[in-house]
Design a protein around this nucleic acid. Sequence first.
DNA 1: TTGTAGGCGTTATCAT
DNA 2: ATGATAACGCCTACAA
Lengths: 325, 325
Amino acid sequence: MSITTASRVLNGSKHPVSEKTRARVLAAAEELNYQPSALARALVTRNSRIIGVIVGSIVDPYFAEIARGVEDVAGRMGYLTMVCNADRHTEAELAHLQTLRDYRAAGVVFASSGYADDEHGGELAHAVADLSERGSTVVALAQRDFECLHAVVDNHAAAYDITDYVASLGHRRIAFVDGPAGLYTSALRRDGFEAAMRDAGLDPTLCFEGGFEYEAGYNAALRIMAAGPLPDAVVGVNDEVAIGVMSGLRQARVDVPAQVSIAGIDDTRPARFVELTTVSVPLYELGAVAARAILARSGDEQRPQPNVLLPHRLTPRNTTARRPR
Amino acid sequence: MSITTASRVLNGSKHPVSEKTRARVLAAAEELNYQPSALARALVTRNSRIIGVIVGSIVDPYFAEIARGVEDVAGRMGYLTMVCNADRHTEAELAHLQTLRDYRAAGVVFASSGYADDEHGGELAHAVADLSERGSTVVALAQRDFECLHAVVDNHAAAYDITDYVASLGHRRIAFVDGPAGLYTSALRRDGFEAAMRDAGLDPTLCFEGGFEYEAGYNAALRIMAAGPLPDAVVGVNDEVAIGVMSGLRQARVDVPAQVSIAGIDDTRPARFVELTTVSVPLYELGAVAARAILARSGDEQRPQPNVLLPHRLTPRNTTARRPR
DNA sequence: TTGTAGGCGTTATCAT
DNA sequence: ATGATAACGCCTACAA
């Protein structure tokens, strides 16, 4: 019973092995509580069973849901998912990419959007190309300026739909709280808002600077209240911001939704907590799709996969109300 | 210029190397965009720069904050943090532990509490011991029945303090919504609640089954309302549950805090969104402490480290009010 | 069907 | 100060 034979049965090689020896090997492995070294295996195979998920912020429920999607399907196949926090810095993404490359990750998932005019964009594109050449599958879950599989939702349409819905409630003065400057997702959603406003014959210029976090929304609420008469409604670039706005308004004794309606985008868990009107984005599914793509490619040959666009859905809840007239 | 020499300068060995050759190696490495294989290195050193964080639920903000703490300090030192989701199943923890062992993780952090009378407890203790012997540092951030470094907060006291505070507001009928059955943290907090109630001369038996998630709180709210006259206040085993209760109550047109006061424990991000009265638990710091312990041990020798108890702090906000009399 | 030899990319040991 | 050589634990030809 040689090492080779043992290796063959333990790693499911298709090389023929007699039933008796197979059984003996299995028995011995069980007996010794033997586990093959993932390290050595990855070293020779040039491919580990690690999947990296690079997120913009580990505490953001948006990314948590995506990570869960990846982890669920990857874990079922014996893959290890590592969630890497980049704090929305391209340089941090670069560093994580480096490490992931060092471990010959089977794939890496870019969960967050890229920046327009990113000064490290070239470097990143280069690193991604390098990674792909080495056999890792990379997939992006939002707009990115490098070549890879994209699985996304239509952010422009999502913002359009929620804005259109709010307008349909009879609101005229509708404000928008923007996301982080330069991020594609921010721009896409703002554009969607503006398009919907124009199509409804409303003024699309009531935009406030924001971010993706609760605090950004809270601060925006302060500026909104200082900027003149209250708007009829405000659409946040995402749920956290919308909740932050609501929190700021309510603290100032503004009644939501009686005085001001509020809506977000994403339908993350906190949105359900506060019964926020929003648009549901299939976050979990986005992650699952990414994981499946990686598993498919690392199993079979490198057959190229088609990009995918997942559907979103308007989800009215209790933070919006019809405008009294 | 041999491989050996190159290796020596590239990995900061303390073996002497002349300045000239050192420079030449560095230049060549830069030139070729060379990166040492983390896999090969880990294979021979029997220690990778991977830290595993096993969490009870990846979407739970409680764990997100802890993961951030670990990731922040580990990332700064070039370590890779992998967040593994166990869905609160000991078996899943076992599986992750297996994988982490295969990759010779530098350390693993158990972020969630263990179960009393866990049927897989023995197995887990065994796996942990095995891991420790192989040189990995394991640290638990809540009560666990295996030998390892513990960095925790006093859950009993945290629950006592928040209950005591609520009672001090004049409330008499105070309900408690419990956490997952069998979990040490649940029991500790419930005990803290009961102790505070008794010390305040109040009835500590108004407990409802719950969980750690929003939905559990929401469902508990329904049962609370069906169980007779509304309580003066309710203390949730954690913030999510407290918010769920609040959501359920408000949906039934119960005014919080005018009719019922509500408080949680943990001070996770959503708690700030809704201005929940709670007790702040140093989640980020818990993770940071764990990471530092792992880094310390994998750098120097295995000097044993002392367990640590981190302080919590009462954080009154707007979901509790003094009882009208 | 089974076994042998070579190599994956490092670090560690022992010369030189 | 530098270099050859042997592991680390596995997989994949290539023989037998």
